[in-house]
Every structure is written in C-alpha cells, then in structure tokens.
Computed example of a mutant assay.
Amino acid sequence: MRDYALNRAIFEDRIGNRSLFSRLFHNWKARKEVSQLTEFDDFMLADIGVRRDDLEWAAKLPITTDPGKALEDRSVLRERHQARRRPGWGAY
C-alpha cells in the first residue's frame, strides 16, 4: 500500500506541474485508453474491478477530469464499501 501511495503521489506531482493544455491532452489520451476497455467482456472487466456501467460513467466525465484516475477511485471505493458489508469484517 505504501508503494501505491508513493507512486500515486509521484504521478500527481507530474500532472500538477503540467500546463492546462498538457493536462487536457493527458486526459484525452486516458479517455481513449478507457474507451478501449469497452471491448473487454464482463468477466475480464470484473477481473480488473470495473463494471460496464463504470466505463459508461467515465466516458461522460468532462475533459478536465482524468477518466482513468476517476475510474480507479470509483472501483477502490466500491471495494471498500463491499468489504465493510461482508460478515466478519473487522473481527480481527
């Protein structure tokens, strides 16, 4: 988890120092990459923790938002929510 947080901070730092045009271009490329996920079947999407409706949601985000990061954040929040609802969560 620490490595993930460190890598995320480095990525955010790189994005934060970019010009508006660079960020928009990055988000446009990320949108193309996310749209390629629609070619995956539902089982493959489930393996990476994404649902088809998540992809539709990400496609509707404004160009000022990175759809890859937003999709990742959404799937992490869903996993946390599901973990809390499982019986025996926090019993340790």
Results as ranks from 00 to 15, higher is better:
M1K: 02
M1N: 03
M1Y: 02
R2K: 05
D3T: 11
N7E: 13
N7L: 13
R8T: 08
A9E: 12
F11R: 15
F11C: 10
E12C: 00
E12S: 04
E12H: 04
D13T: 09
R14N: 14
R14G: 15
G16R: 13
G16M: 07
N17H: 14
R18W: 15
S19D: 12
S19V: 04
L20D: 14
S22K: 08
R23P: 01
R23N: 05
L24C: 03
F25M: 04
F25C: 00
F25T: 09
W28Q: 12
W28H: 13
A30M: 14
R31K: 15
R31V: 10
E33F: 08
S35L: 03
L37R: 04
F40G: 00
D41N: 15
D41H: 12
D42V: 12
F43K: 14
L45G: 10
A46M: 13
A46R: 15
D47A: 00
D47L: 03
I48K: 01
I48L: 03
I48F: 01
V50A: 08
V50W: 04
R52F: 09
D53H: 06
D54V: 05
D54A: 06
L55G: 09
E56W: 07
A58G: 06
A58N: 07
A59C: 07
K60V: 00
L61T: 03
L61D: 04
I63Q: 09
D66Y: 10
D66I: 11
P67Q: 06
G68A: 12
K69N: 09
K69H: 11
A70D: 05
A70Q: 04
L71M: 10
E72A: 11
E72L: 12
S75H: 04
L77A: 15
R78A: 15
E79A: 15
R80C: 02
R80M: 09
R80N: 05
H81E: 14
H81G: 07
A83V: 01
R85Q: 11
R86F: 00
R86Q: 08
P87Q: 00
P87D: 03
G88T: 05
W89E: 02
G90S: 01
Y92D: 14
Y92H: 13
Y92R: 14
